[in-house]
Amino acid sequence: MADKGRKVELRSAVMKKNDRIAGENGKTFEEARLLCLNLMSSPGAGKTTLLERLAERLGDSLAVIEGDVQTRRDAERVEAAGSFAHQIETGGSCHLDAEGVSRALEEMRPFRDTWRYLVIENVGNLICPSGFYLGEHLTAGMLSVPEGDDKVLKYPGLFSKVDLMLINKTDLEGKLPFDARRAEDECRSLNPDVTVLGVSALEGAGVEELVCLMEEERRKLFG
Protein backbone atom coordinates (compact mmCIF):
# COMPACT_ATOMS: atom_id res chain seq x y z
CA MET A 1 0.00 0.00 0.00
CA ALA A 2 2.76 2.44 0.99
CA ASP A 3 4.30 2.54 -2.48
CA LYS A 4 1.08 3.08 -4.44
CA GLY A 5 -0.49 6.45 -5.14
CA ARG A 6 0.49 9.66 -3.36
CA LYS A 7 0.06 10.62 0.25
CA VAL A 8 -1.93 13.75 1.03
CA GLU A 9 -1.41 15.03 4.57
CA LEU A 10 -4.61 16.46 6.01
CA ARG A 11 -4.22 16.59 9.79
CA SER A 12 -7.83 17.64 9.83
CA ALA A 13 -9.19 17.64 13.36
CA VAL A 14 -12.94 17.29 13.22
CA MET A 15 -13.66 18.61 16.71
CA LYS A 16 -11.32 21.58 16.15
CA LYS A 17 -13.72 22.82 13.49
CA ASN A 18 -16.59 22.52 15.97
CA ASP A 19 -14.56 24.29 18.65
CA ARG A 20 -13.66 27.14 16.29
CA ILE A 21 -17.33 27.76 15.54
CA ALA A 22 -18.14 27.41 19.25
CA GLY A 23 -15.59 30.15 19.93
CA GLU A 24 -17.44 32.40 17.49
CA ASN A 25 -20.70 31.60 19.26
CA GLY A 26 -19.00 32.56 22.52
CA LYS A 27 -18.09 35.96 21.05
CA THR A 28 -21.73 36.43 20.04
CA PHE A 29 -22.80 35.75 23.63
CA GLU A 30 -20.22 38.24 24.92
CA GLU A 31 -21.32 40.98 22.54
CA ALA A 32 -24.97 40.45 23.48
CA ARG A 33 -24.08 40.13 27.21
CA LEU A 34 -25.90 36.82 27.41
CA LEU A 35 -25.01 34.20 29.99
CA CYS A 36 -25.27 30.92 28.10
CA LEU A 37 -26.05 27.62 29.83
CA ASN A 38 -25.97 24.25 28.01
CA LEU A 39 -28.46 21.91 29.72
CA MET A 40 -28.03 18.17 29.14
CA SER A 41 -29.77 15.05 30.40
CA SER A 42 -31.45 11.87 29.24
CA PRO A 43 -34.92 12.18 27.66
CA GLY A 44 -37.63 12.75 30.27
CA ALA A 45 -35.37 13.91 33.12
CA GLY A 46 -37.26 17.20 33.26
CA LYS A 47 -35.21 19.76 31.31
CA THR A 48 -38.21 21.35 29.60
CA THR A 49 -40.28 21.43 32.78
CA LEU A 50 -37.41 23.25 34.49
CA LEU A 51 -37.29 25.69 31.60
CA GLU A 52 -41.01 26.35 32.00
CA ARG A 53 -40.30 27.32 35.62
CA LEU A 54 -37.39 29.53 34.52
CA ALA A 55 -39.59 31.13 31.84
CA GLU A 56 -42.28 31.94 34.42
CA ARG A 57 -39.60 33.48 36.64
CA LEU A 58 -37.40 35.26 34.07
CA GLY A 59 -39.89 36.11 31.32
CA ASP A 60 -38.37 38.15 28.52
CA SER A 61 -34.91 38.21 30.08
CA LEU A 62 -34.61 34.54 29.06
CA ALA A 63 -34.14 33.15 25.55
CA VAL A 64 -34.07 29.41 24.93
CA ILE A 65 -32.70 27.30 22.09
CA GLU A 66 -34.43 23.92 22.03
CA GLY A 67 -32.77 20.89 20.46
CA ASP A 68 -34.81 17.83 19.50
CA VAL A 69 -34.75 15.26 16.73
CA GLN A 70 -38.25 16.29 15.74
CA THR A 71 -41.25 18.51 16.68
CA ARG A 72 -41.55 22.01 18.12
CA ARG A 73 -43.19 20.70 21.30
CA ASP A 74 -40.56 21.92 23.71
CA ALA A 75 -40.26 25.40 22.17
CA GLU A 76 -44.04 25.74 22.34
CA ARG A 77 -44.01 24.84 26.03
CA VAL A 78 -41.38 27.48 26.80
CA GLU A 79 -43.20 30.11 24.74
CA ALA A 80 -46.46 29.35 26.58
CA ALA A 81 -44.61 29.80 29.87
CA GLY A 82 -43.46 33.29 28.89
CA SER A 83 -40.03 33.25 27.22
CA PHE A 84 -38.70 33.36 23.66
CA ALA A 85 -37.78 29.93 22.27
CA HIS A 86 -36.13 28.86 19.02
CA GLN A 87 -36.45 25.19 18.04
CA ILE A 88 -33.69 23.26 16.28
CA GLU A 89 -34.96 20.02 14.75
CA THR A 90 -31.87 17.90 14.09
CA GLY A 91 -33.73 15.38 11.93
CA GLY A 92 -31.72 12.49 13.35
CA SER A 93 -28.58 13.80 15.01
CA CYS A 94 -28.32 12.79 18.65
CA HIS A 95 -26.71 16.02 19.86
CA LEU A 96 -26.43 19.71 19.07
CA ASP A 97 -23.19 21.00 17.62
CA ALA A 98 -21.66 24.45 17.38
CA GLU A 99 -22.64 24.90 13.75
CA GLY A 100 -26.30 24.17 14.49
CA VAL A 101 -26.27 26.68 17.34
CA SER A 102 -24.52 29.24 15.12
CA ARG A 103 -27.29 28.92 12.52
CA ALA A 104 -29.93 29.19 15.23
CA LEU A 105 -28.35 32.39 16.56
CA GLU A 106 -28.50 33.96 13.08
CA GLU A 107 -32.15 33.01 12.75
CA MET A 108 -32.88 34.55 16.16
CA ARG A 109 -31.63 37.98 15.14
CA PRO A 110 -32.32 40.69 15.96
CA PHE A 111 -31.70 39.76 19.60
CA ARG A 112 -34.07 41.44 22.03
CA ASP A 113 -32.59 44.07 24.36
CA THR A 114 -34.33 42.38 27.28
CA TRP A 115 -32.42 39.10 26.93
CA ARG A 116 -29.95 38.39 29.73
CA TYR A 117 -29.80 34.59 29.73
CA LEU A 118 -29.68 32.00 26.96
CA VAL A 119 -30.35 28.38 27.90
CA ILE A 120 -29.66 25.73 25.29
CA GLU A 121 -31.71 22.60 26.00
CA ASN A 122 -29.67 19.91 24.30
CA VAL A 123 -31.06 16.76 22.71
CA GLY A 124 -32.02 14.20 25.37
CA ASN A 125 -28.92 12.00 25.58
CA LEU A 126 -26.39 11.39 28.37
CA ILE A 127 -23.50 10.59 26.04
CA CYS A 128 -22.96 12.50 22.80
CA PRO A 129 -23.91 16.10 23.74
CA SER A 130 -21.08 16.33 26.28
CA GLY A 131 -18.54 15.89 23.49
CA PHE A 132 -19.59 19.00 21.56
CA TYR A 133 -18.72 22.42 22.92
CA LEU A 134 -21.31 24.96 21.79
CA GLY A 135 -19.66 28.14 23.10
CA GLU A 136 -21.54 28.16 26.40
CA HIS A 137 -20.31 29.72 29.68
CA LEU A 138 -21.83 27.01 31.88
CA THR A 139 -22.76 23.38 31.44
CA ALA A 140 -25.39 21.57 33.49
CA GLY A 141 -26.05 17.84 33.66
CA MET A 142 -29.45 16.83 35.00
CA LEU A 143 -30.13 13.47 36.66
CA SER A 144 -33.66 12.73 37.87
CA VAL A 145 -34.62 10.63 40.90
CA PRO A 146 -36.44 7.87 38.94
CA GLU A 147 -33.31 7.28 36.84
CA GLY A 148 -31.43 6.00 39.88
CA ASP A 149 -28.45 7.15 41.89
CA ASP A 150 -26.01 4.84 40.07
CA LYS A 151 -25.94 6.68 36.75
CA VAL A 152 -23.11 9.16 37.35
CA LEU A 153 -20.22 6.73 36.97
CA LYS A 154 -22.00 5.04 34.08
CA TYR A 155 -21.88 8.31 32.12
CA PRO A 156 -18.54 9.84 33.09
CA GLY A 157 -18.11 11.82 29.87
CA LEU A 158 -20.90 14.14 30.95
CA PHE A 159 -20.66 14.21 34.73
CA SER A 160 -16.88 14.68 34.79
CA LYS A 161 -17.08 17.99 33.03
CA VAL A 162 -20.28 19.81 33.98
CA ASP A 163 -20.17 22.93 36.13
CA LEU A 164 -23.53 22.11 37.66
CA MET A 165 -25.27 18.83 38.45
CA LEU A 166 -29.02 19.20 38.89
CA ILE A 167 -30.84 16.41 40.70
CA ASN A 168 -34.44 16.80 39.53
CA LYS A 169 -37.73 15.33 40.78
CA THR A 170 -36.65 15.64 44.42
CA ASP A 171 -40.37 15.50 45.20
CA LEU A 172 -40.12 11.73 44.54
CA GLU A 173 -37.20 11.09 46.92
CA GLY A 174 -39.26 9.54 49.67
CA LYS A 175 -41.11 7.28 47.24
CA LEU A 176 -38.19 5.80 45.26
CA PRO A 177 -34.88 4.22 46.38
CA PHE A 178 -32.61 7.14 45.47
CA ASP A 179 -29.55 8.11 47.51
CA ALA A 180 -28.75 11.71 46.59
CA ARG A 181 -25.54 11.65 48.64
CA ARG A 182 -24.26 8.69 46.57
CA ALA A 183 -24.98 10.49 43.28
CA GLU A 184 -23.31 13.67 44.56
CA ASP A 185 -20.24 11.83 45.95
CA GLU A 186 -19.77 9.93 42.70
CA CYS A 187 -20.01 13.15 40.70
CA ARG A 188 -17.42 14.81 42.99
CA SER A 189 -15.11 11.81 42.58
CA LEU A 190 -14.89 12.70 38.90
CA ASN A 191 -15.44 16.42 39.20
CA PRO A 192 -14.39 17.93 42.54
CA ASP A 193 -15.43 21.48 41.64
CA VAL A 194 -18.99 20.65 40.59
CA THR A 195 -21.93 22.50 42.15
CA VAL A 196 -24.81 20.18 43.00
CA LEU A 197 -28.37 21.47 43.28
CA GLY A 198 -31.53 19.50 44.07
CA VAL A 199 -34.63 20.76 42.26
CA SER A 200 -38.23 19.81 41.70
CA ALA A 201 -39.16 21.42 38.40
CA LEU A 202 -42.74 20.23 38.84
CA GLU A 203 -43.19 21.82 42.27
CA GLY A 204 -40.68 24.66 41.90
CA ALA A 205 -38.23 23.71 44.65
CA GLY A 206 -34.66 24.82 43.92
CA VAL A 207 -35.64 27.08 41.02
CA GLU A 208 -34.90 30.28 42.93
CA GLU A 209 -31.46 28.91 43.89
CA LEU A 210 -30.78 28.17 40.25
CA VAL A 211 -31.81 31.68 39.22
CA CYS A 212 -29.50 33.14 41.91
CA LEU A 213 -26.66 31.02 40.59
CA MET A 214 -27.29 32.23 37.04
CA GLU A 215 -27.51 35.86 38.19
CA GLU A 216 -24.23 35.51 40.08
CA GLU A 217 -22.46 33.92 37.11
CA ARG A 218 -23.74 36.64 34.81
CA ARG A 219 -22.53 39.32 37.25
CA LYS A 220 -19.06 37.75 37.31
CA LEU A 221 -18.93 37.94 33.50
CA PHE A 222 -20.57 41.25 32.72
CA GLY A 223 -20.69 43.15 35.99
Binding site: E9, L10, R11, V14, M15, N191, P192
Partner: peptide, 20 residues
Amino acid sequence: AMAREVLSGRDLVVDYVRVE
Protein backbone atom coordinates in the same frame (compact mmCIF):
# COMPACT_ATOMS: atom_id res chain seq x y z
CA ALA B 1 -6.57 14.22 42.78
CA MET B 2 -9.41 14.03 40.28
CA ALA B 3 -9.57 17.67 39.17
CA ARG B 4 -7.89 17.87 35.78
CA GLU B 5 -7.96 19.47 32.37
CA VAL B 6 -7.90 17.49 29.16
CA LEU B 7 -4.97 18.55 26.96
CA SER B 8 -5.69 16.09 24.16
CA GLY B 9 -7.67 12.95 23.44
CA ARG B 10 -11.12 14.28 22.68
CA ASP B 11 -10.66 14.61 18.95
CA LEU B 12 -10.86 12.61 15.75
CA VAL B 13 -8.08 13.55 13.31
CA VAL B 14 -7.90 12.56 9.66
CA ASP B 15 -4.11 12.27 9.41
CA TYR B 16 -3.67 11.58 5.71
CA VAL B 17 -5.19 9.92 2.68
CA ARG B 18 -3.36 8.00 -0.02
CA VAL B 19 -4.83 8.70 -3.46
CA GLU B 20 -4.21 7.48 -6.98
